[in-house]
Amino acid sequence: MKKIHIELIMPEGKKIDEMVDSINVPGVDGDFEILPDHTPFITKIRPGTLCLNTNNKTTKYAIHDGFITVDKDKVIIISEIAESEKEIDLNRAKLSKERAEKRIFNSKDEDIDYRRAEVSLHKAVARINTIG
């Protein structure tokens, strides 16, 4: 079966460089799946779970931002933060979710605090969902 070459490039270096069967990506306009022979495609990633599927096994990563380009069975993701299941601290994520919710509840909308709390809420939810 045809495979896809995926690379995840982070500021600290390459995090993933492997061959997989399919990839599930959280895009800004909705989640999508990449299978071999996908059309050339560029999009932005929203906070969520990135799944790499190989031989019916799935590896999950919490990903927070970045861009993905698909070009001839080669997928490259550039992202500033991506964590594998092992690296996620579930308790910390839950705490930061609570904190962010409280801040969103208390602040008036559209100011900077509100937007920052929103971002950290998205990140926390992405982490929790990746584990769950």
């Binding site: 800004v28 306009d29 059309t39 495609f41 560029i42 999009t43 932005k44 380009t69 070009d71």
Partner: peptide, 15 residues
């Protein structure tokens, strides 16, 4: 390569 874009080019370029 003729890429598809999502959302649109302007937003992507800005980001």
């Amino acid at each position: 390569v003729d890429f598809l874009y999502e959302p649109d080019e302007e937003t992507l370029i800005e980001e």
